[in-house]
């Protein structure tokens, strides 16, 4: 009975994090982006500096009609948002935020689970693009697929580098094995992982698959109301997951002063900092062209990732 309660509480906590954190990131994006552009951003919703803007957006989305185009593949079309959103919830369950058992569910092959499930998230956009019966959506879906192909590889390679360094594939195990000098050692891998993750989330500057001014939000062109909101939520949940993963793999998760009591705070702080960087990058850089995107992955990120693996291997052999 106690076990059931424990599992239920953990899942509830993960679910709450899943509902709240993406909204926090979204609100921060509203405000940070506005101030980086010399604006104020939302100021009315909720009274104080527009803190409830995303709640208001949610209410608006809920009121909208749920339209399915006549030519669309109905079932696939309706299922796509869930496919895009759920993987991030599943990933959140296995990300450790503190020492001990401060994790939704301990999974032995954590890295494998996380990377595999995150790849499924992109499938949602692909389904949406195919099922919408719209040429822009199809273009967006195919661009998503191409992007997934080229950016999943550097992500896997750099994650493998960390796993090599730690000698384990379990996420809490990796953080346990972490030493401060891993940061300079794995810095190239960390940058590659983070960049490739951004591309996988289709965040600017790697947002050619959704490029609103070019192919009208790509795979999401035909979506309205709550289903569209789910895609948006998936994007922000993806940011949370990516930042948390980068923290856990490359920035030492809960390591820091007073890690025993305040470890979870360190994880959250590092994650929040990375989320800020995600927003910062979005504001600063223009969108990469589709061919530049591909070129960047294959000629820059993958060689860098391979070099990181080589470096990790050499250092590992030398110190053992």
């Amino acid at each position: 009975m106690n076990d059931v309660l424990d599992v239920a509480l953990r899942l509830l906590a993960v679910f709450l994090v899943f509902l709240v954190f993406p909204l926090l990131v979204g609100q921060t994006e509203h405000k940070v982006m506005a101030h980086m552009q010399g604006r104020l951003g939302p100021m009315y919703a909720g009274g104080f500096h527009g803190w409830a803007q995303l709640v208001a957006d949610g209410v608006k989305f809920a009121q909208k009609e749920d339209v399915v185009p006549a030519g669309a593949d109905r079932r696939v079309f309706q299922l796509a948002p869930a496919v895009a959103l759920l993987p991030y919830l599943l990933v959140l369950i296995v990300i450790p935020i503190g020492p001990g058992n401060a994790v939704g569910r301990f999974v032995d092959a954590g890295i494998f689970f996380v990377l595999a499930v995150m790849g499924v998230g992109v499938l949602g956009a692909l389904m949406a693009g195919w099922a919408s019966a719209n040429k822009f959506s199809l273009l967006g879906g195919l661009r998503t697929a191409a992007q997934l192909m080229s950016y999943e590889l550097p992500m896997l390679l750099t994650a493998a580098s960390v796993a090599m360094a730690a000698g384990t594939v379990s996420l809490p195990g990796i953080v346990d094995a972490f030493e401060w000098w891993w940061v300079p050692w794995q810095i190239v891998g960390g940058l590659v992982f983070f960049t490739a993750g951004l591309a996988e989330l289709q965040r600017p500057p790697f947002d050619a698959p959704v490029a609103d001014s070019e192919i009208i939000f790509g795979a999401y062109t035909e979506y309205t109301g709550l289903r569209f909101a789910m895609f948006l939520l998936a994007e922000y949940a993806g940011i949370v997951v990516l930042c948390a993963l980068t923290t856990v793999l490359f920035l030492g998760g809960w390591h820091g002063p007073y890690a025993d009591g305040l470890g979870w705070l360190w994880t959250l702080l590092k994650t929040a900092l990375l989320a800020f960087v995600v927003i910062w990058l979005r504001v600063t850089y223009p969108r990469l062209r589709e061919d530049q995107l591909q070129k960047f992955a294959w000629t820059t990120l993958i060689p860098l990732a391979l070099a990181q693996i080589a470096l990790t291997g050499i250092v590992k052999v030398v110190i053992s």
Partner: peptide, 21 residues
């Protein structure tokens, strides 16, 4: 050039906004 871009946006964030309320 990339770093310069980041610096510009960060500097703008610390400045007073232009918005007229």
């Amino acid at each position: 050039g990339l770093a310069k871009g980041l610096a510009v946006t960060l500097r703008t964030m610390t400045r007073k906004t232009q918005t007229r309320q």
